[in-house]
Nucleic acid binder design. Structure first.
Length: 292
DNA sequence: ACCCAGGATGGAA
DNA sequence: TTCCATCATGGG
């Protein structure tokens, strides 16, 4: 054990690390053969593993205040209480039954916004590759355990703001490059303050985000749900649309985006975003296992 | 070769 | 309104 390392124990039950860290809400985690997950949060390398009674975390350097990780993992959330707010119907029962322990993280706003700007029409594997390239090129090296492979922070908005579109395109992000660049510049200039979004009503926060080029309702809701604490934000991507159409609109005409929004806003309750993540994970897992 | 991916946008029908 | 092409890139 590295003498410079620091550890933290988080008592929690119903926390499925694999489902949570690898379900498309965050893109920087990797699972080691021994089952531990490592990533970079708030500019620190960190390893998290499941242990009897909860989660155990380890950093490369001493940590005084663990708030950054407690905030990120949201282990104090009582999952059972969240699940109880879901509508009592067979679809949600099946979705919850398929992946107990799936949780929502509370991510850093800029990394979350930038990541989902890069997510449009990309598979999760590719999103991870793009973000990895971006961090290697423009992030800051962070301390890692002795002998460990190097790791980088997620580049700050101010760092990306000083780049050119060509620099970003070199990270294989294609037409998303100008979108990311504009977002970085507006955030760095203080024209868009991500830290104040959580205090706004959902509609206003969403409008602030969709004022960015390349950010529509779906990406905005990802940012609001995964980093802003908006429990009712409900991102509708291809998987969730598929879930809603197949599981709730079976015998009806193909719903318009407007109808889907209306349904999502009224059917799933105060933790609609949580329900959405269960549907997302449920559909993806089904697709992965059903097909030969 | 073809279709699809945690989309968004502007213009045509 | 709804439909459609386009954007860039890589996996299956």
């Amino acid at each position: 054990m590295d003498p410079a390392a620091d550890t933290l124990m988080l008592p929690v039950r119903d926390y499925d690390l694999a489902a949570t860290l690898d379900c498309g809400q965050a893109f920087r985690w990797s699972c080691r053969p021994d089952g531990a997950w490592e990533g970079v949060v708030a500019g620190r390398w960190v390893e998290v593993r499941s242990v009897p009674g909860g989660l155990a975390a380890r950093t490369a350097e001493p940590v005084g205040d663990w708030h950054w990780l407690r905030q990120y993992l949201q282990a104090e959330v009582e999952l059972a209480a969240v699940l109880r707010t879901f509508p009592d119907e067979p679809v949600m029962q099946a979705a919850v039954g398929a992946c107990t322990g799936l949780r929502l993280l509370r991510q850093e706003p800029w990394e979350c916004l930038a990541s989902f700007i890069l997510s449009s029409t990309k598979q999760i594997v590719q999103i991870r590759q793009i973000i990895d390239l971006l961090c290697r090129r423009f992030g800051e090296p962070v301390a890692v355990p002795l002998g460990h492979a190097p790791a980088w922070s997620f580049p700050a908005a101010g760092r990306l703001a000083e780049l050119t579109e060509t620099d970003l395109r070199a990270c294989r992000m294609g037409f998303r490059a100008p979108h990311l660049l504009q977002a970085a510049r507006r955030v760095a200039a203080g024209e868009l303050n991500l830290d104040t979004l959580p205090a706004l009503p959902l509609e206003e926060a969403r409008a602030a985000l969709t004022s960015l080029r390349g950010v529509g309702d779906k990406i905005a809701d990802c940012v609001l749900l995964f980093s802003g604490g908006f429990g009712r934000a409900f991102p509708v991507d291809v998987w969730v649309r598929r879930a809603l159409c197949e599981l709730y609109f079976r015998r009806r005409r193909r719903p318009t985006p407007r109808q889907l929004r209306q349904f999502a806003d009224t059917h799933f309750g105060p933790n609609a975003g949580y329900a959405q993540q269960y549907l997302f994970h449920y559909m993806r897992r089904r697709a992965a296992t059903d097909t030969p």
